[in-house]
Design a protein around this nucleic acid. Sequence first.
DNA 1: TTGCATTTCAAACATTTGTATGAAACTATC
DNA 2: GATAGTTTCATACAAATGTTTGAAATGCAA
Lengths: 229, 229
Amino acid sequence: MASDQTRSAILAAAERLYADRGFGDVTLRDIVAEANVNLAAVNYHFGSKDELIAELFVTRSIQTNRERLNELKAAEEAGGGRASIEDIMRALVGPTLRGCLGPDREGSTAARFMIRASIESVPPIRRIKNREVDHLRKFAAAMRRAMPGRDDTELYWGLHFALAMAHHTIREKERLLRLSEGKCDLDDVRAIIDRVVTVSVMALTMGDAPSKPAARPVLVHGRLTRQDL
Amino acid sequence: MASDQTRSAILAAAERLYADRGFGDVTLRDIVAEANVNLAAVNYHFGSKDELIAELFVTRSIQTNRERLNELKAAEEAGGGRASIEDIMRALVGPTLRGCLGPDREGSTAARFMIRASIESVPPIRRIKNREVDHLRKFAAAMRRAMPGRDDTELYWGLHFALAMAHHTIREKERLLRLSEGKCDLDDVRAIIDRVVTVSVMALTMGDAPSKPAARPVLVHGRLTRQDL
DNA sequence: TTGCATTTCAAACATTTGTATGAAACTATC
DNA sequence: GATAGTTTCATACAAATGTTTGAAATGCAA
């Protein structure tokens, strides 16, 4: 068998098992059984279990970051070089929410893996996450361009809260579903993204209103409209 | 040694070690060493390691819930039986944020333990968290009283986002600090609570404005004032 | 084919870890 | 102070798990 086949069989099996059962109770033996390869293959190809997990997470992180930046770039080009704050926030939370929620989420192993990574936060992943700040700086810069003059502190808090709402929704979707007795529709990703974006922009622009009501966020793509509010 | 002394020595040592080093790499042997008791004492007094962790978490959860409900009750009494939505949100996120952030947080083992519990989410704790919904229902009820006529869905989302911002701030405070290069002051708990409450109330009351600007949240206790915005 | 490097494999290793055991020490009650 | 119940202790157990090893198999170039 070609070397790459074993490698990717391990990666695929590991991602699937971790996504399904969490990092806590998936052993290397489980993984190699699922991948139909020998136990020693993991250490041969990856060095250690932790490096395997790290590779999985890095791959998926890069993917997400690329999607985010693509969306940001598209918004900037559409806006003639400068994206609106709303579109920036949408680019920030959209890819993750779309990937991890929605009715077809069961089919996406990658998304479920990233949810696990967000919930369980195992050491090798935590190490990577902690140096993930550079990517966010690009968003901070775009936000600064979109809201010149606004204090940087406010900007960071807005960015922080946007991620908070997006990630918490992914992490705790079961609980929200139970608490709301199904009233909160977690399959309508469009609406959820709009909701998170709206609140984020409100947090970022608070104080601009009420004198300038035009600055208030307006929902574009979603189902929420003024009369719902 | 009296039975209770051993018991509480184990509890204290376990909480301290878990808080410092996380659930991942603290063994029962570490705990009994720290507590100066015999290894078998854990199983004798608690049955198993998981039950020890569960007891730690339940104790602290009850404590937090009590603080939240006390604050809610106080607000309701001060408001003549009905608390404002702002005070309700403040009662929801205040105790946790006060406990887990702030300059004296290093001293509070309990708070650091709860942060760990929030970050690592080990099985026995996850099991408990999943049936923790009842407590939140009381807050949902209070919110319903404060905002009669508002759609329940909106209410749950507001509750959800409030917890999102609070918990994410606790979980990711290091990252926010690094991202903002220290600009976001995570020691000023007062200001953070005000910020979370303000955004939560904005999320809950969105649509009430701009026709009724009086309905916009006004910061009371904090340092943020209108001229900052 | 020969020879060399890469990859696979079964088996064993070395720890770590939670738990169980049975005797000893202790405590409190009568 | 004898006895029964409780608690402590040293030690052992059993299972799991990541990692290593050295040989066998495979692929590939000369």
